[in-house]
Design a protein around this nucleic acid. Structure first.
Length: 161
DNA sequence: AATTTCAGCAACCGCCAAGTT
DNA sequence: TAACTTGGCGGTTGCTGAAAT
């Protein structure tokens, strides 16, 4: 059923309330982040009944102060496509090339937007190659697509260790 | 105006690897 | 060294508001 980390005590699930956000931010600003398992133990005193995993995700994807909000720019979209062509669905790695963006955000953007665009251009979103039996219906052809700036192949300095 | 369908996104789940006991 | 814990990741679900009927 649930995670082993949450199975012991009652924990809340689902969307976070502004009050919960506030409690988590207060906890992180005083204790710092890094030991997520201790967050629910300590902060449950404040009434935050979330498992460590949920706290970590909420912080990383929404509460972190260095997050960039708003729509992806054309440049960011280009970076995602180029890096994805090399790395595939390694969202965390891709997100490292986009300051202020999270892996979840990149993944959602890919699934809801970029994938459709590539398919509309007759490109296989997995391989980025022209799909058989399809013609690019739009103005961008495979040839023009291939002229986009390339990123060095793996193993690449793009991926910091 | 009411209902249904769709799209986008936040959050969960299960798995894995590394660290600890 | 096996068992357990924890953090991290990618796939997927399901909620919500917008658009369509």
């Amino acid at each position: 059923m649930g995670h082993h980390c949450c199975s012991r005590q009652k924990v809340k699930r689902g969307l976070w309330s502004p009050e919960e956000d506030e409690k988590l931010v207060r906890y992180i600003t005083t204790h710092g982040h890094g030991c997520w398992s201790s967050v629910p133990k300590t902060s449950s005193i404040l009434g935050l009944q979330r498992c460590g995993k949920s706290c970590r995700l909420r912080w990383i994807n929404y509460l972190r102060p260095d997050l960039k909000r708003g729509s992806f720019t054309e440049h960011e979209e280009r970076v995602i496509i180029d890096v994805h062509r090399i790395l595939g669905n390694r969202w965390a790695q891709i997100a490292k090339h986009l300051p202020g963006r999270t892996d979840n955000e990149v993944k959602n953007f890919w699934n809801s937007c970029i994938k459709k665009k590539l398919i509309a251009q007759g490109l296989d979103p997995k391989t980025h190659n022209l799909m058989p039996n399809t013609r690019p219906p739009l103005s961008i052809t495979h040839q023009t697509y291939l002229t986009f700036p390339k990123i060095p192949a793996r193993p690449s300095p793009l991926v910091p260790t």
